[in-house]
Amino acid sequence: MSIEVWLSYFLAVVILSVSPGAGAVNTMSTSIRVGVRRSIPAIFGLQAGLALDILLVGFGLGALVASSVTAFTVLKWAGAAYLVYLGYRKWTDQGTVEISRGQAGEASAWKMFNQAALVNLTNPKALVFLVALFPQFIDPARPQLMQFFILGLTLVGVDILVMFGYASLASSLRQLLSSRRHMRIQNRIFGGLFVGAGALLASVKS
């Protein structure tokens, strides 16, 4: 994998991680309840779920590459189209993200870890997104294991940093995310980024 391909992938996963989703909402909600330091188990629980998703997608795509390069190429273009579709959905989304303060409670670190892991494991969109994303950067003519390892490690590393950022800024972000006007602006920014990413990824050569 060339540095140019990796940098393109890095940009894509930054967009993916920063764009508010179930993981970000879980992290912010937990941080609001128990603080940034005590929300660390929840952040790493998200990564555990994400890592299992990456393994599932990696094994599946590896088998697909071994059986049919043509099918892999079709999946690559379908994935790029899906990214553009996500951008359209994000651009037109008029909703807000609701974060409940709730009670601080005494949830154990293990319970927060497990609950956060399930957020990613039970979110089919995470799997679909990874299936759409990974083929853009995998060279089917080269060994697969190291390529998947680099992609997975990069994604988890970026997501950890972003989730810590969300946890730290949870209080100030709460007001922005509960404002329909602010959320509409944010949705259009991320929607445009997704569409641009889909167009860019379709042209990337491993």
Results as ranks from 00 to 15, higher is better:
84 V>L: 00
67 S>G: 14
191 G>D: 14
11 L>N: 04
16 L>M: 12
68 S>R: 09
150 I>E: 11
13 V>E: 06
176 L>Y: 03
108 S>T: 14
61 L>Q: 11
45 G>R: 06
120 N>Q: 07
91 W>Q: 04
24 A>D: 02
83 L>S: 09
17 S>N: 07
194 F>K: 11
189 I>P: 11
185 I>A: 11
7 L>C: 03
107 A>W: 05
22 A>G: 04
39 S>N: 07
156 V>M: 14
91 W>L: 10
111 K>T: 10
85 Y>I: 01
126 A>Q: 14
133 L>T: 03
142 R>M: 12
111 K>G: 00
14 V>Q: 02
164 F>I: 15
184 R>C: 06
192 G>T: 15
118 L>Y: 08
107 A>R: 10
166 Y>A: 04
95 G>Q: 04
165 G>M: 12
6 W>P: 04
170 A>K: 02
115 Q>F: 03
150 I>M: 12
28 M>P: 07
3 I>N: 03
146 M>L: 13
11 L>W: 03
166 Y>L: 09
66 A>Q: 15
45 G>F: 10
37 R>V: 13
71 A>G: 03
154 T>C: 10
79 G>S: 05
34 V>G: 08
168 S>V: 15
166 Y>R: 10
203 S>C: 09
25 V>C: 06
2 S>N: 14
119 V>F: 11
35 G>A: 05
130 L>M: 11
162 V>T: 08
6 W>F: 13
65 V>N: 00
155 L>P: 03
73 T>M: 13
49 G>L: 11
156 V>L: 15
178 S>T: 11
64 L>C: 09
115 Q>W: 02
45 G>L: 07
150 I>L: 13
117 A>P: 01
185 I>E: 07
196 G>T: 13
121 L>R: 03
25 V>L: 13
54 I>S: 01
43 I>K: 01
178 S>I: 06
97 V>P: 03
157 G>R: 11
54 I>D: 01
116 A>T: 06
180 R>T: 14
83 L>A: 12
3 I>V: 08
170 A>E: 08
154 T>Y: 04
196 G>F: 12
36 V>L: 02
14 V>L: 10
94 Q>M: 05
43 I>D: 01
185 I>F: 13
10 F>I: 02
103 Q>R: 12
22 A>C: 01
